[in-house]
Amino acid sequence: MSYRNTITDQIKLTEHIQLVTSNGLKYLHVAHPKATAHISLFGAHLLSFTPASSAPVIWMSDDAIFNGVKAIRGGVPICWPWFGPAKDSPTVQPLAQTQDFPSHGFARNNHWQLLESKSNNNACRIRLQLTESPESKRLWPHSFNLIVEFIISDTLTINLTTHNTGNHSFDYGGALHSYFQISQPDAVSVAGLDNDTQTTCTLDGYIDIVYKNPSTVITLNDKQHQHQIKIKNEGNNAMVVWNPWEAGAKAFVDMSDDGYQTMFCLEPAIIGKNAVTVAAGASHTLTTILSVTPA
């Protein structure tokens, strides 16, 4: 990650957490005996997670752009308050049909506030916050308080909580757009994607599938890395599986031409007409918990 070569300031927040500045942007570096991780405050974007004695779990593009404008390629982008093109989302106002609203919402393209950083011998806990602004109201006319919590230990927990701070209910969609590090495409398979069919998904070409009745626990098996990644999700109504393959990778300026060979996106999502309704004063949480075990 190129930003790590241009760090200009470092502040120790806890024994295991540092706040660093690079090119005017802020990042959290976690170095705990149980795991390491990196988080960008731009987008509240998890950039890496590596348990002790394990291969990296999260994939990051070698050509990712860290400019505080473009969403970062790789890691776990937060798609919110809609998923996919704005014009296709039922949670977006009709104005999106005619104007250039950002794909996957605006949370991943905004700077978040650090609310809390704690650590002890068992884990590190980090909480970041995003609230409405004139620009967010232009895109999505609702009052909200969006909080993401990262719990970093030998497992990783991400809790994305949407608080409705307005006087009327709203619908929202989104996803934790998780890019997983894999050894090579023919070494991986995924089980538990659909409660109806119990099929196993393999990776041998372009894939972009939405599973609308996903299991709570999904398993990514990697024979080459000799491990399993357990992905436990709550609060989602779908699971998105995506790899752009060769043609897609070549079309991205922020992914190397062969980058598709070492990544696989498995995304707990809230999509479609069944997007979540949050009443005034209420909240909803989308959660993913990642754990790694030997295969």
Rank of each mutant, 00 (worst) to 15 (best):
S2T: 10
Y3E: 07
R4N: 09
R4S: 12
N5R: 15
N5G: 14
N5T: 12
D9N: 13
Q10V: 05
I11D: 12
H16Q: 01
L19V: 08
T21N: 15
T21R: 15
T21D: 14
S22V: 12
N23T: 13
L25D: 12
Y27F: 08
V30Q: 03
A31F: 04
P33F: 00
P33L: 00
T36K: 03
A37M: 12
F42K: 09
L47C: 13
S48P: 06
A52M: 02
S53E: 05
A55C: 06
S61Y: 08
F66W: 13
V69P: 08
R73C: 09
R73S: 07
G74W: 03
P77M: 13
C79F: 14
P85A: 08
V92D: 12
T98F: 15
Q99S: 14
F101L: 11
H104I: 11
H104Y: 11
G105M: 07
F106I: 12
A107T: 14
A107W: 15
A107N: 14
L114F: 11
L114N: 06
K118E: 13
K118T: 11
S119G: 05
N121M: 04
N121I: 10
N121V: 10
N122P: 07
N122L: 12
A123T: 09
R127I: 10
E132I: 10
E132M: 07
K137Q: 15
K137P: 15
F144M: 10
F144T: 10
N145Q: 12
V148A: 15
E149I: 00
I152S: 06
I152Q: 07
S153W: 03
L156F: 08
I158K: 01
I158Q: 02
L160F: 04
G166T: 05
H168G: 11
G173F: 07
A175H: 02
S178M: 11
F180E: 03
Q184I: 00
Q184H: 00
P185F: 00
S189R: 03
A191F: 04
L193W: 11
N195L: 09
T197P: 15
Q198H: 14
T200Q: 08
T202L: 03
T202A: 04
Y206A: 02
I209G: 11
N213R: 10
N221Q: 06
Q224A: 01
Q226Y: 03
Q226W: 01
H227G: 06
K230L: 05
K232A: 10
K232C: 08
N233F: 03
E234Y: 08
N236W: 05
N236C: 09
N236D: 07
A238V: 05
M239N: 11
W242F: 06
P244I: 02
E246V: 04
A247T: 02
A249K: 01
K250F: 00
K250C: 01
A251W: 01
A251P: 00
D258S: 07
Q261A: 00
E267R: 05
E267L: 08
P268R: 09
I270F: 06
G272T: 02
A275V: 09
T277H: 14
T277I: 15
G281F: 03
A282D: 05
T285R: 01
L286R: 04
T287L: 08
S291C: 03
S291N: 03
